[in-house]
C-alpha cells in the first residue's frame, strides 16, 4: 500500500518468488518490498528460507520462479551491475586469510574496479569505521570473531553500497561484540544505507529492524514493524509459570487470552501479568517459579508457528 507513494522507492521487489534445489522447495512464493532507507528483517528459524532469499537478492543464486527486481533491475540479466551497487555480509566470514586486514579491504575494492588510490583511501576510512585501525597490518586469522565480523562488514562497504545485505550478522558473537556491531549498523542506517538483515535472534530484530517478515517453511507468516506484530499477534504482557519437570500442568485457559504449553513451562498471554499471577495463586496453583515480562517477537513466532524459535 506504500508502493511509490510520496517518492518512496523500492530497492527490492519480489513477487511470488520461489527457489527449488532439486525437489526441495526452499522458498515457496514470497512477496517482499524493501524501501530505500529502511532496515528490513527476515526473521525465522534455520531452514526457513532466509538465506536462499538473500542469495537471490545478492544475485549469486538464480530464482526458480516468480519475479525479482533489485535496484530496479533483473538479477538474471544485470547481476554484475546490481552487485556493483550492493554490499554483502555472508553468514560465515570468507575473508582472504592470505592477506592482511588492510589488504583485504584494498583488494576487495579492486574487485569492484576502483582505482588503487581510491582503494587505499577507502581502506583507511573503513578501518576507522570498523575500529580496526590498530590492526591494519596484522594477519586476519588471529583476529577475534567480533573483529573478523567487523572486517567483513567493512569490506562489504568498500563500494559505498546503496543496499547492504547482512546474513545473520551476529550469530556466534558474545554480547559485547554484538552491541558494538549493532552500533555500527545504526550508524550506517543513519547515513542512509538500506539494510536487509536475516536473523533468528528476536532482540536483534527488535533492535535493528523498522519492518520485518517472519518466515517459516519457505513462506512468509506475517509482516509488519516489530511493535505492530507484537500488538497484532500477542498481548501486552506474558506470565511465565515454571513447574516441576514431568508434573502435570494445570488447566489455566480461563485466566488468560491465550495459553501456550511448552515442555517445561506455561505461557499465559494477558494484558496485566501481575493481576493474572494473583488470580492463579488464588486458584491454589503453586508454580515453582513465575515471571512477568513484556511480549516479544518470540511470542509472535510461537503464535504463528506453534514452535519456539531458537531450540
Amino acid at each position: 500500500m506504500f508502493v511509490n507513494v510520496g517518492g518512496v522507492e523500492n530497492l527490492v521487489e519480489a513477487k511470488a518468488l520461489t527457489k527449488h534445489f532439486g525437489t526441495f522447495e526452499a522458498v515457496r512464493g514470497i512477496d517482499v518490498e524493501v524501501r530505500r532507507g529502511e532496515a528490513f528483517g527476515f526473521l525465522g528459524p534455520n531452514g526457513a528460507g532466509k538465506s536462499s532469499t538473500m542469495r537471490m537478492v545478492a544475485c549469486v543464486s538464480g530464482r526458480t520462479g516468480g519475479e525479482l527486481k533489485v535496484l530496479g533491475m533483473d538479477p538474471d540479466r544485470d547481476g554484475p551491475k546490481i552487485r556493483a551497487r550492493i554490499g554483502v555480509v555472508p553468514q560465515l566470514d570468507n575473508l582472504d586469510l592470505e592477506l592482511t586486514v588492510r589488504q583485504n579491504l584494498q583488494i576487495y575494492g579492486r574487485y569492484f574496479g576502483m582505482s588503487r588510490q581510491r582503494c587505499r583511501e577507502k581502506a583507511v576510512e573503513l578501518l576507522e569505521f570498523a575500529q580496526l585501525a590498530d590492526r591494519a597490518d596484522h594477519e586476519v586469522e588471529p583476529l577475534s570473531g567480533g573483529m573478523k565480523r567487523r572486517l567483513t562488514i567493512a569490506r562489504s562497504l568498500v563500494n559505498d553500497p546503496e543496499l547492504l545485505l547482512l546474513d545473520e550478522p551476529t550469530t556466534g558473537l558474545d554480547p559485547q561484540a554484538r552491541h558494538l556491531l549493532w552500533d555500527r549498523l545504526f550508524r550506517l542506517k543513519q547515513d542512509g544505507v538500506t539494510l536487509i538483515i536475516t536473523t533468528h535472534y528476536m532482540d536483534e530484530a527488535e533492535q535493528l529492524c523498522d519492518r520485518l517478515v517472519v518466515m517459516d517453511g519457505g513462506r512468509i507468516a506475517a509482516e509488519g514493524s516489530p511493535s505492530e506484530l507484537i500488538n497484532r499477534y500477542s498481548t501486552r504482557e506474558v506470565l511465565e509459570l515454571r513447574f516441576q519437570p514431568g508434573a502435570e500442568k494445570p488447566d489455566l485457559e480461563r485466566f488468560a487470552e491465550r495459553v501456550e504449553v511448552l515442555p517445561d513451562r506455561l505461557l499465559l498471554y494477558t494484558q496485566d501479568g501481575e493481576h493474572t499471577l494473583a488470580k492463579v495463586h488464588e486458584h491454589g496453583v503453586q508454580p515453582i517459579q513465575s515471571l512477568v515480562r513484556r511480549s516479544s517477537l518470540e511470542d509472535v513466532f510461537l503464535r504463528l508457528t506453534g514452535r519456539t524459535l531458537v531450540d
Binding site: 545478492a58 554484475p80 552487485r83 555472508p90 586469510l97 574487485y111 569492484f112 574496479g113 563500494n159
Partner: peptide, 14 residues
C-alpha cells in the same frame, strides 16, 4: 576451504 571465490562473486566479478 578458503571460500575465497564466494567472496569474489559478491562483487561484479563472475
Amino acid at each position: 576451504y578458503a571460500k575465497l571465490y564466494d567472496a569474489m562473486l559478491a562483487t561484479p566479478m563472475g
